[in-house]
Amino acid sequence: MTNRRHFLAGLAAASLAPVRGWASVGAPDYLAAALFPDGSYRLAGLDINGEILFTLPLPARGHAAAAHPYRAQAVAFARRPGTFAVVIDCTTGRETARLEAPKNRHFYGHGVFSANGNKLFTTENNFEAGEGVIGIWDSQSYTRLGEFPSGGVGPHDMRLMPDGQTLVVANGGIETHPDTGRSKLNLPVMRSRLSYLNLSGRVLEQVELPRAMHKNSIRHLCVRRDGLVGFAMQWQGETSQHPPLLGLHRQGDAPHLLSAPVADHSTLQGYAGSIAFAGDGQTVAITCPRGNALHRFTVDDGQLSGVFPLEDVCGLGPGTGGFVYTTGTGLVGRLRNGKAKTFAQPRCQWDNHLIPIRGPA
C-alpha cells in the first residue's frame, strides 16, 4: 500500500513540489471509503488497477465522496444520518474544512460539485418537515449559501448532467428522523421519483415509477455522456415480490426498467447497492451485496448480458472496456470481456461506493 507519507517523500526526493491538481497525488481514478485493520475509517484514492495511492482519515464511517473537478480536493460524506462532511486536501492529507449540517438537517452521504467547481451541492433531509433539500455551499470557504427543495422525500444520490446546468436527484421516497435512527417511517405511502432540477432549484422534470412499484426506492445514479441516466433501486415491499432494481431514463421519455430472469433476480433480496455505465457506455451494471452478485445489461436492448457471483460486492465504477468493483471483503476487481478478475486485495473493508474522479462514459 502506497501511503501519503511515502508518496510525499518520493516527491521530495525527486525535487518536485506538490501542485493543486489531481496529478499531484498520483492521478487517482477513484475515491472510496473503507474500514482499515487498525479500526480507522479512511478515504482512499485508487488507480485503475486497484492500487491505493493514498489514504486519509475520517472521523467516522464514510459513505460516498465528491471529487473537485480541478483541485486535488475531496469531500467525504458521513453515512446517513450523519451531520458531517470532511473537506480534504489530497496533496497534504489535511482536513481543510468541515461541513456541519444546519439545524434540523442531516446529510444523505452524497454530493456533487458544479462544473466550474465553485459550488458544492449536497443531498439533505429536512427531518422536521419530512422533506428533502439540496444544500448549496461555496467551495472556497465551504460556507453555506442556501438550499432548495430536492423535489421529493429522502434524496440520496445526485449527479450533475452533462449540460453542466442540471442536477438529477434520486428522491428515494423514504422518510426518516434521527430520533429513530435509520428506521423507515412512511413505507405504506412512500413515493420515489427522479427529479431534474436546474442549479437554482427549479424543477424541470419529475419521473415516478408505476403505482404498483411505489415502494421501489430509487437510491443511486449514473449518467452517460449523452445524458442517459441509470438508476438503482431498493425494494421496500414484500420479500415475496421481486420487482426490477435497475432503470434507464432519458429526459422527456418514460423510464425503462431492466431485470434478470426470475431464477437470478429472485436471489438479490430486493437490493441494488451501486450502479455504473461501463467505460465504453455500452453496458450498465448493478451490484447486489445481499445477493452476492453483479448483474450486467446491454444498454441498447436492455437484455441481461452477465451474472457474476461476487461476495459482498457493492462499489462500482467505469473501467477500460468494462467496470471496476470493490467488495466488503477487501477485493478490488475488474469486469471485462465477460470475465470478473480480482487484481488487488488491500487489507481493508470497502464501503458502499467507488466514485470515479473523471467524467461520465
Rank of each mutant, 00 (worst) to 15 (best):
N3A: 03
N3V: 04
F7E: 12
A12C: 00
A14L: 14
W22G: 11
S24H: 02
V25A: 09
P28W: 11
D29H: 09
L31C: 03
A32T: 14
L46P: 06
D47S: 06
L56A: 14
L56N: 12
P57T: 10
R61E: 15
A64E: 11
A67K: 10
R71P: 03
Q73C: 13
A78F: 13
R79Y: 11
R80Y: 10
P81T: 06
P81E: 07
A85C: 07
E95A: 11
E100P: 00
P102S: 12
N104F: 02
G109R: 04
S114W: 08
A115L: 14
A115Q: 15
L120N: 09
T122Q: 10
N125C: 01
F127C: 01
G132N: 03
I136F: 00
I136L: 13
I136N: 00
I136S: 01
G146M: 07
G146N: 07
G152C: 06
G152Y: 06
G154F: 04
P155S: 04
L160I: 02
Q165G: 08
L167Q: 02
G173E: 09
E175T: 08
P178K: 04
P188V: 14
M190H: 11
R193K: 13
L194K: 05
L194D: 08
Y196V: 01
S200I: 02
L204C: 09
A212V: 07
I218V: 12
R219P: 02
L228M: 08
L228H: 05
M233I: 12
G237Y: 12
T239G: 09
S240N: 07
P244T: 02
G247S: 07
L248T: 05
H249D: 01
R250A: 12
P255N: 04
L257F: 12
A260E: 04
V262D: 13
I275D: 04
F277Q: 01
G281V: 02
T283R: 07
G291C: 08
H295K: 10
F297T: 06
T298W: 02
V299F: 01
G317E: 09
G328C: 13
A340E: 14
K341E: 15
T342C: 12
W350R: 14
L354R: 04
I357D: 09
G359H: 12
G359Q: 13
